[in-house]
């Protein structure tokens, strides 16, 4: 995984590549076809329910590809086709995940949701901080008592006077 991350992104577009086509020539540069969450879901739900798509979806899930990846790919593709905006795509992502899981559950197919508590999956800083704290807490508990607190705490007398006052 680390090796993949270290490779230079040679297949990335060169700077200014997006300016080589006329503005508005791409589908995502046009006004979105479905502007509300409901409209976008009305577009997705019949597609997901169709037999052809369901079979392909279940095949993909059986291969071990997480539901979150499938849902994100679907919405990203629709954004590129100009079906809906990125904002609507973000909003409907959780619904797509639940819908895909519902289809998989009804077909009794085992799948990876991609929502498991994992450091790599969680981008939330709060989650990371909590897991780090728990790890440190666990490490401290593992240490023998003598190593944790050898020296008693020394109470130092702090001067209650201000900075400008005369030292006693």
């Amino acid at each position: 995984m680390a090796d993949i991350m270290m490779q230079p992104p040679l297949d990335a577009p060169i700077p200014g590549h997006s300016l080589t086509k006329e503005l508005g020539s791409r589908p995502w540069q046009q006004p979105a076809q479905y502007t509300t969450v409901e409209d976008a879901l009305d577009y997705y739900i019949p597609r997901l329910e169709s037999e052809e798509v369901t079979e392909q979806l279940l095949d993909v899930l059986e291969m071990g590809i997480p539901v979150t990846t499938v849902a994100n790919t679907m919405q990203l593709g629709s954004v590129m086709e100009g079906k809906h905006s990125v904002d609507v795509g973000m909003l409907i992502l959780p619904v797509l995940v639940e819908l895909i899981m519902l289809i998989a559950d009804s077909a009794k197919v085992e799948y990876t949701s991609g929502l498991e508590k994992d450091k790599k999956m969680r981008g939330s800083l709060v989650d990371l901080a909590v897991s780090k704290f728990n790890e440190e807490k666990g490490m401290k508990q593992d240490l023998p008592i003598s190593e944790v607190d050898d020296e008693p705490l020394k109470v130092t007398a702090s001067s209650s006077s201000g900075l400008m006052s005369r030292s006693i």
């Binding site: 979150t68 995940v97 929502l115 981008g123 939330s124």
Partner: peptide, 14 residues
């Protein structure tokens, strides 16, 4: 870099 925000969106909504 975050490429798939699905899990975060789902978590936040939950």
């Amino acid at each position: 870099m975050l490429t798939n925000p699905t899990a975060i969106m789902h978590q936040n909504l939950s």
